[in-house]
Simulated scan of single mutants.
Amino acid sequence: MSTEVIQERRTAAAEGDVVVFLIGMRINKLRRLRSWVPVFRAMPRMLRELSQDKESGLLHYRLVLGGPRLFTVIQYWESKEKLLAYAMDAGKEHRPAWTAYNRSARNAGGAVGIWHETYLVPEGRYENVYVNMPEFGLGAAYGTQPVGRRGDRAADRLKVA
C-alpha cells in the first residue's frame, strides 16, 4: 500500500456492489491473558493467509485501534460469496480459530468479546472522496480515479433514486 499523498480530489474506482466486513475484539478483563491473547494472535494469521492468497477475495484491510482494549479490522471483499467461503473453510485459519474461541469463551467469564458486521452495499449506494490523501479505504481496495469521472458532488456520485 502506497503512502504517497495524491494532491487532487479522487474517488474510489469501484464498480458494482461492495462488500465491507468489520471485525473486532474487546479485551474485557486484562488480567485474563489466557483468554484474550489467542484471539489477539489469530487475526494476524488470518490476514497474512488472506493477503498471500490473491484468489481469496480480500481486496484490502486496515487495522484500527479503538482505545487500549478495542481492536477493529476494516476489510473490503470482492464478493460476499468469497467472504463466506473463507469463513466456512475448515482448511483455513478462521475455522479453527473460531472453534477455539467458542470452546474457551464458555469458561472465560466474558474476558474477551468479539464482534463482526457485514455490509453488502449495492452499486450507486456508496460515495467517497479523498483530498490530499494516499489511497485509503475503498480507494485502497479498488484504486482511485479523478472525482470528475464519477461526478464532482457527493450527490452526483450517489445514484439514489
Rank of each mutant, 00 (worst) to 15 (best):
I74H: 13
R106E: 12
R10Q: 12
A13M: 06
G24V: 02
I114H: 02
L58E: 07
G113E: 10
E117I: 07
Q7V: 04
G143S: 01
E123W: 00
A42P: 10
F71A: 14
K29D: 12
R150I: 07
E127G: 10
G110P: 08
R125G: 09
Q145E: 15
L63S: 13
V147G: 04
T144I: 02
W36H: 02
V5D: 04
V147I: 15
E78F: 11
V131T: 14
A140C: 13
V20T: 11
R10D: 00
G57I: 07
F71S: 07
G137Q: 02
S35T: 11
V5M: 02
E15Q: 13
G91R: 02
R41G: 15
N132Y: 07
G139F: 00
L33E: 05
A13S: 13
Y119S: 09
P44K: 00
N132A: 12
V64R: 06
L65E: 15
Y86W: 01
P146C: 05
G67P: 08
R149N: 10
M25F: 12
N107C: 05
L58R: 04
A111I: 01
P122Q: 01
R26H: 07
R34Y: 14
V20K: 00
Q52Y: 01
R149I: 11
S51A: 07
L30V: 15
L70T: 15
G16D: 03
K29A: 11
I114S: 00
G57Y: 03
G113A: 09
E127F: 07
L65N: 13
G143D: 03
G57H: 08
D89T: 11
M133L: 11
K80D: 14
